[in-house]
Design a protein around this nucleic acid. Sequence first.
DNA 1: CGGCATCAGTTGACACGTCAACCATTTCGA
DNA 2: TCGAAATGGTTGACGTGTCAACTGATGCCG
Lengths: 187, 187
Amino acid sequence: MTTSTYDEPAAAVAAAGRACDVAASADQQDVPWLTSDQLRAWVGLISVAELLPARLDSQLQRDADLTHFDYQVLAMLSEAPERTLRMTGLAQRTSATLPRLSHVVKRLEVRGLVERLPCPGDARATNAHLTDLGWDTLVRTAPGHVRTARELVIDVLTDEQVAQLEAITSALLTRLDPEDRLLRRNR
Amino acid sequence: MTTSTYDEPAAAVAAAGRACDVAASADQQDVPWLTSDQLRAWVGLISVAELLPARLDSQLQRDADLTHFDYQVLAMLSEAPERTLRMTGLAQRTSATLPRLSHVVKRLEVRGLVERLPCPGDARATNAHLTDLGWDTLVRTAPGHVRTARELVIDVLTDEQVAQLEAITSALLTRLDPEDRLLRRNR
DNA sequence: CGGCATCAGTTGACACGTCAACCATTTCGA
DNA sequence: TCGAAATGGTTGACGTGTCAACTGATGCCG
């Protein structure tokens, strides 16, 4: 049972893995457990993935009453021709489900940051359009957001690490986003 | 206004940044915008931070009706002496607020995976204890979780990249988790 | 044309996290 | 030793995301 007393969260996951070696040999495929190096990287990554979005949300919430997701929606629209996108396209660019996007856009519309228009070409579709107020809000909010991005990530790393991070996330996204919905690399 | 048509999400954030240069020079501090390299790394990171937790949740939900956070709670308890931790300590180890943990532990207790006991030393405190059922559940669930960790992250990267990722996340956590780990409504 | 499958999007019920308020216990200073 | 403040934890209301069901429009194939 190996019940030594670990202090670090990393060890907890490891212990569960070790326990599995004992119990799971029967009906589970052999899954090689992580080395201690791999384990540290894994725990680090999931910790960052847990804490970073919360920080972004709280900064944007405080400064502009926006979710990070709200911000991304506004940002995508600000880039689009006519500042307009169909709901489906917007959902893909923000990695969101359609129901989620629908709810969010509805709230943004109530606040006057976005408006919904029927799509001329296809009566089923809806176009989301960034209003002037939405644009102004985005412009006003961007600097603080960038500052946060620098404080929490960019300025903490060396240029070399930034380059490494780009390569690593790019590799991960081939698994996490196989359909390339984020349109990061449109082949 | 520079309204060229960008295809990449990365550009969207950039545009907002550029716009800010125009409008915000008056009352905002000068925030140097991100270079294209930095921008790619940033967008990659927030994409991963958005997608990875969702994947972990859905795998664990499917296989064991557990949230990734539930899993982490069980894992931390499995490591602790007597498989027992006080709520506050558990909250720190899982980067959770106390209310969140309280709700989660209540649900886990209903399912019989955890039990709550008054703390002998301090009548205010509560001890959370992993039951045998909880241990078995964790043991049964771990292999699939490890497999997912490999498929989505570890096996996608070279050994060198894993090492780089460890260094990078370690650096980021000095900012994201500067000893806070709870301290919600202080002062 | 008629009928069926698919697509685009919305809605509502439910689950989870957050926040503020709250209670009980403990600590500490005067 | 008494009372105020701090600690440990729980609860309930509210906002947001998810899923399943639904509406309406479009496309397809006979």
